[in-house]
């Protein structure tokens, strides 16, 4: 679905109709920024990430860091939403969590934080625990204990 969207977006961009397309999109998707809509999104999956770009191609260093951290823990199967594709969602998620920046990570519907917090939780071991609470076993538990010995 998102691939079709991207292809369409690219095609329209090359046709010089990007602004018209985005205008049409924002009027159709007017409620994607609503509290109800976002509430549904964050509760849909155990791990939900709002980011710039997609996990395969993050468009921001902070979003990329979140993706890489989750990958290190073997968390690949999560829902991600690209806020660059939807201005309503971009503002809506900031209002929803009262958090001014992207990326934003949710575990079992609960806001965990952005890049700095996830990184810190990764470094101090909290992330392994938090993942466990939502029923995900971190891949780091199965690795050699010295794999990130030089993280300091």
């Amino acid at each position: 679905m998102s691939r079709v969207f991207l292809t369409t977006a690219r095609f329209l961009r090359t046709q010089g109709a990007r602004s018209a397309f985005l205008r049409a999109l924002s009027s159709e998707a007017a409620d994607t920024g609503s509290r109800e809509h976002i509430d549904g999104l964050v509760k849909k999956d155990k791990v939900v990430v709002f980011m710039k770009g997609v996990p395969q191609q993050p468009m921001c260093g902070f979003s990329n860091a979140v993706v890489q951290i989750l990958r290190m823990h073997g968390v690949d199967n999560y829902s991600s939403y690209n806020v660059l594709e939807d201005e309503n969602l971009r503002q809506g998620i900031k209002d929803y969590s009262s958090w001014p920046t992207i990326p934003q990570v949710f575990l079992s519907g609960e806001f965990v934080g952005g890049c700095d917090i996830l990184l810190q939780m990764h470094q101090n071991g909290d992330l392994v625990e938090e993942l466990q609470k939502v029923g995900i076993r971190s891949a780091l538990l199965d690795k050699q204990p010295d794999t990130d010995k030089d993280k300091q």
């Binding site: 770009g53 921001c60 979003s63 660059l84």
Partner: peptide, 10 residues
């Protein structure tokens, strides 16, 4: 801090 990934222009 992480390096830029080029998404600023949006």
């Amino acid at each position: 801090s992480p390096a830029c990934r080029g998404g600023m222009g949006q």
